[in-house]
Structures are given as C-alpha cells and as structure tokens.
Design a protein around this nucleic acid. Sequence first.
RNA 1: GUCCCAGUAGCUCAGUGGAUAGAGCAACCGCCUCCUAAGCGGUAGGUCACGGGUUCAACUCCCGUCUGGGACACCA
Length: 568
Amino acid sequence: MNSNGVSSSSPVSDQLEAAIVRALELALAAEELPSGLALPSEVTLERPKNRDHGDYATSIALALAKPSGFNPRKIAELLRTYLLADIIIKDSISAIDIAGPGFLNITLANSSQGSIVASILSEGDKYGHGSALAGKKINLEFISANPTGPLHLGHTRWAAVGDALGRVLSAAGAEVTREFYINDRGNQMELFGASLRAAALGLPVPEEGYHGGYITDLANAIKDRSPEYLSLPEADSLDAFRDAGYALQLLDQQRVLENFRTHFDIWFSEKSLYENDFFKHCLERLREQGHVFEDGGATWLRTTDFGDDKDRVMIKSDGAFAYFASDSAYYISKRERGFEICIYMLGADHHGYVNRLKAIAACAGDDPNYNIDVLIGQLVKIMENGEELKLSKRAGTIITLEELVEKVGVDAARYTLIRYPVDTPMVMDVDVLRSRTNENPVYYVQYAHARICAVLRNASDLGITYGADQIHPELLENERERELIGALAEFPRVVAGAAELREPHRIARYAEELAGIYHRFYADCRVLPMGDEPATELHSARATLCSATARVIANSLALLGVTAPEKM
RNA sequence: GUCCCAGUAGCUCAGUGGAUAGAGCAACCGCCUCCUAAGCGGUAGGUCACGGGUUCAACUCCCGUCUGGGACACCA
C-alpha cells in the first residue's frame, strides 16, 4: 500500500484484466448479454502504440460481437459502465473511452501511476519477478559441447541466451537447474586422445582427428606434466592422453564460461548413464511402454510410433551403444530427477533431432508437447573490418568464446547475442560492438542507467530528497512522464512473456525501448533545479521517477547478465 | 525427395490477431554559455516475397508458389 490508498500487490494491468472479467460476468448475470454466451478464458489487455488511445486498451467487445450478436460498441458501453462502478478498480481509472469499432481505451488515474512507482521502489531488485511459472521444476540444458576443444562462436550464442533464459525462467518463479551435458564417451573421445598422443610424439595427427593449435599446446602440457604417459603401452597411453586432455579441456570450458557469467548447476557426464546399470533400467522402462524391439541383432526404439521419420538404433548389432542410447537414457534421467519440463537448446544443424527427442519423451509415456521443449538456434556470423571472419576448424581459424570476449567485452558480447530471436541467423559486427553510439544498443541502455545515476548523485548533492514518500503522482502530468511510468509498469508482463515464450530477447528489446523513453523524458523534463531555483516537490517527484527507472533498467540488464554501470 | 528457418525502408533487423507497420545505420536539417551530446528533435524512405483462405480485424494464423540458407547416418 502507499499514500494514495491503492493496493500495489498486483500490477494495475492484472487488476484491470480481472475487473473486465468481473464486468462481463455481471453483464451476463444481469442478462444484458445473451445468456449462454461463452466468455473468453483470458481478457487481453494491451498497451496501445498510439498514446491517444489511453494507457491500456482491450478489444474484448469486438471479439464478443459475433457470438453475442450485439453491436460491439454497445458491449463496450456495458463494460465501461460496470468498470467505472467497480469498487476495486474505479479509483485507478481516470477515463474510459470507446473508440473506433468498439475498442475500450482506458486511461489510468494519477494515483495508480503513483502506485506503480511505489511498487518498483519497494520491490527493488525483485520488481518484475512473478509467479507465472511458480512450482515448475525445469531442466535447462544448453551448450553441451564436446570436451575435445575450446568453446567457439557457435557455443557462445547459447552460452549467452541459455544463461539469460535461465535467469528469466527463475524470475518467472520456476525452479531452474542449468545443465551442461558432457559427451565424454564414444569415438570422438578416442580420436581426441589419439590426436593428443600423436602431437606429443611429434607424429602426424590422424586424418579424422583434431588439429588446431590448441591440440599441440594441450599435448605439450600433458607431456610436461606426465612424461611417463609416452612410455606406456599404446592402448594405455591413448587412454592416459584422452583422460588428461579431457580433464584439462573441461576445466578450461568451465573457467571460460564462469568468466562469461554463465553458470551451470550440473555438469552431466554421458559416461555416467552407463554406470550402475542405469542404462539397463532405462531400457526396461522403455520396454514396459512397448516401444522397444530387436531387429538384425540391434536394439531399436520405435520412434515412428510418435512422428519420427524412422526408427532409431540404441544398441548396435556389434553390441556398442549408439548415441541415441545416451539421448534416451539422458531424457529419462532428467525426468527421474524430478524435472517436469526439459528444455533443450540445440543448434540449427541439429534440427533433425527435434522429432526424435520428442519421440523419446512419448516412448517414455510423457507428453511431448509439455515435458520436453526443444529450441533451435540459428548460426552466428562475425564481421570485422567489414569482412566476415570465416570459421574453419581445420584451418585453425575458429573464433573462441574467449577471443570474442577479448575483442568486445562480456557485456557487449552477451547483450548482442541475446537481443535477437534465436531462430534467426545473426551477424555480430565487432566494430559496432566496440563503438559508443546509438548503433550499439548495449551502450544505449547502459548509458541511460549511468545518466540517471549521475542525475541522482547531483540530486543528493543539492539536498533534493527522493523515494517512496516523494512520488507526488499528481505532479507528474507531462506526456513524457506518463509514458515513462507506463513503460515501467509493463516490465512484469514482459518478464512473464519472455519466460513463457522462452524468448529472453524480449527483455533486451524492452530495455532499449525503456532507455529511449527515458532519454526523451530527460530531454523534455528538467529533473533538477536550474541555477538558483529553489527545489520543489516536482524536482523530488522527477528524481523519484528517475530512481524507479534506474531500478527497472538494472533489473532488465540483470536478467541478461549484463552490468548496469553507475558511471560511463 | 522429406524436413527446419528466413524473405518487412537503400543496409542490419524488431514487431504476443488489433487502430496510422517501427528502431538503428546510411542521407538531409536542427538542438549543449545548466542535470552525462555514448543523448534529443525533424525531413525523406514501404506492393510487410507472391497467390488464395480463415476472421469484425492478418506483417502476424492456415494452404500453395517463388527465392535464399540449413539439415538427413547402426557418426558423435
């Protein structure tokens, strides 16, 4: 509660939605709408693009026109009357206009503008967090690179987006576990070991093996530390190089990711799926569901029962486990560890895996449209000096995550990777990311934050107080002020939407919009007194609004794992 | 052949079925003797690839076509 007597326990938009539902129910009960009219399960409230259309608008009257047989403007009239009489909401509304074919345009009262600012200040770094996904236990798997080399540009998009999605899901109330799946068994690991040993012996690396310069470095490091590996029998020597290389490479990946502010709760070993008869247990579970069969000496999962285009081998005719065996067991492991929703973030080159992963869930008796959620990310290109940097593993010209960070810094790299929807290819331009102009959105947003901090420092120097007791909403009547408050009020809905749609880029786009609105406010509304002007309540009110804006920008950036500097 | 993604301003891209489709860059014109100009305002720029359909309402949903990119394994 605040001095204006308006509850701030839920966002005004939620209260409005609830009030519209109440209005519809009352109109129905009073038989002012045809009995038996099915009401929509949700009333959508939107922020009109055009500010002349109020703070919020709903098209519910238009949607109900057809089923009710009523003129939409008449329905809008009914709703307007009930809303203006609604005990809970009426004081939050200053006007409701009916426009066009039947839109309800709602303008908020000053008091509810004030309550928005008050809740931002009281909730602090929790403002924007909600309960849209409360109680959901989510496993978020991303990157999952082979431990046979450094993380490169392709992994970097997932590192940024996956981490941000984890933060967003948590903010929406979900219980999130971030997991990195380590492909630590199979042919690639053997090739890795063979490549390292060959490099250490000065022999040519196997044709299909690993080449880049890091292999030589790694091989030399192992050789220096454990020269005795070279005198072991060949099979043991290969194992020793493989295991040592794996351990070093994994540590390196972990170090690089922590430096990139991407944290994993669990590093899950593929090998562990085969320990303690776990795989056998998984196979039994799948068999019970009736989708396992034998053919040609191999053991298959009949994924075609659930929309896959062909059945998949789990155990090959030679007795070796196919990769699909691990995929299946891993999914079951996640579910048995209590995760209700398993999110997989995969590269576009793995899009063919979507159907088979969903089929695994279905074969295990789960709902493939709920328990498993596969996100496909498109590729990233990188430009520098106007040219695309060609990535070739063989030529050793891969750009690593670490190199990218050296070039542009963690903030710019993370922000840029997150601000695009993952299902579209993107181009990172190193020169833009180093620039300090409007071209570079991360600076645009951070600058807004730093600018506010500077204003607030000056306010303190001038003895101007600001805070929850200085909101004075009745003084904030400038169009720019109302626009700014309206944008601040949207933040919780943006977070909830980003979480539900698994689209963290929405947070970045919102932050940019908010920063733009603040910059325009700053240009039009002088916050601090000029010269010898005495300080007034308006100065305090605007400084308070600045403080709330800085809070929301900082919260947005926090969800992206980007810093909010106080000085730039 | 099957499947996935994309096609929106000169360029790079946003856009949850709503009202006059947006931003940055590039072009042009303006704004700091007072809060951070890493900022703000203005002008100009559009057949939302094309054709149907659904809807009170389609850039948005469905079907088809065209163009571009990518993927198909008893590899991992």
